Simulated assay, not measured.
Amino acid sequence: MTIDIPGYRSGTWNLDPAHSEVTFSVRHMMISKVRGTFGVKSATLVAPENPLEARVEASVDVTSLSTGDAGRDGHLLSGDFFDVEKYPTMDFVSTGARAEGGELYVDGDLTIHGVTKPVTFELDFGGFGADPYGNYKAGASAKTVINREDFGLTWNAALETGGVLVGKDVTITLDLQGALQA
C-alpha cells in the first residue's frame, strides 16, 4: 500500500531542534495535570518513494526535562523516576507506518529508563514548505499515551484522601519540524 502526500519528497530528513518540542502530561493527585518538556537530541527520517516505508530514529535528552518547578524537576531526574545518571536519553526507532481510516500511524519501539516497549504514535501531518533560506521543510505532530510503570517508572505516594500522587498514563506529544538534506 502507498499513500499520496502532496509535496512529499524522498530523502533523508534531519530534525530542526529550534522548531521542535517533546511535551508530556500526567495526572497529579488525580485532580489536575502536570506538563513538561524535553529537548530533542536528534531525529532522522529516511523517506523512500513510498511514505509508508519511511524509517525514523529519534533521541530525546532526558536531562533537559523542565516542568517549570526546579524541585519537581530534580525529583523526576533522580533515581525515583528517570535516573538520568544511568539513562540520559529516551529513544525511538520506528518499525512501520500505516494509514487507517484517513489517519496516519507510526509504530515503533520506545526505550525509556532502559526498558523498550512497542508504541504507536498517531501522526498529524502539517505539510511541506521552503523557508527563506532555501531549505525544504516538513512539519508534523504525533501523540501517544504510555503507562509509565511499563517502563520501570513506578515511584508513587498514596494520598490520604485515596488514590495516588502521580497517574500511570502519560501523554507524549511531539511537535516536529525537519529539513531535507541537500
Rank of each mutant, 00 (worst) to 15 (best):
G11W: 14
N156K: 14
E85P: 00
E57V: 09
K137C: 11
A140S: 12
G129N: 08
T23I: 11
A70L: 03
Y133R: 09
T154P: 00
Y8A: 13
A97G: 07
N156E: 06
P48V: 09
A140M: 12
D124S: 12
A58V: 04
M90R: 00
H75C: 09
M1W: 11
D175L: 05
R148L: 08
T171W: 00
F82D: 00
I146S: 09
V34N: 04
G74V: 05
G71L: 04
M29E: 11
S32R: 01
H28L: 14
D16K: 04
L65S: 02
D169L: 03
E100G: 00
R35K: 10
K137S: 03
T161V: 14
S42K: 00
V34D: 06
T37R: 13
T111C: 10
T63V: 12
G96Y: 07
G102I: 11
Y105H: 11
R55M: 05
G79M: 06
T23L: 09
T171V: 15
V106S: 08
N14Q: 15
V115H: 03
G39H: 12
T89G: 00
A158L: 13
F38H: 02
H75N: 04
A157R: 15
G152N: 12
G71A: 13
N50Q: 13
T37S: 13
E85A: 15
L174Q: 06
L123Y: 08
D131E: 04
A182F: 06
L180P: 01
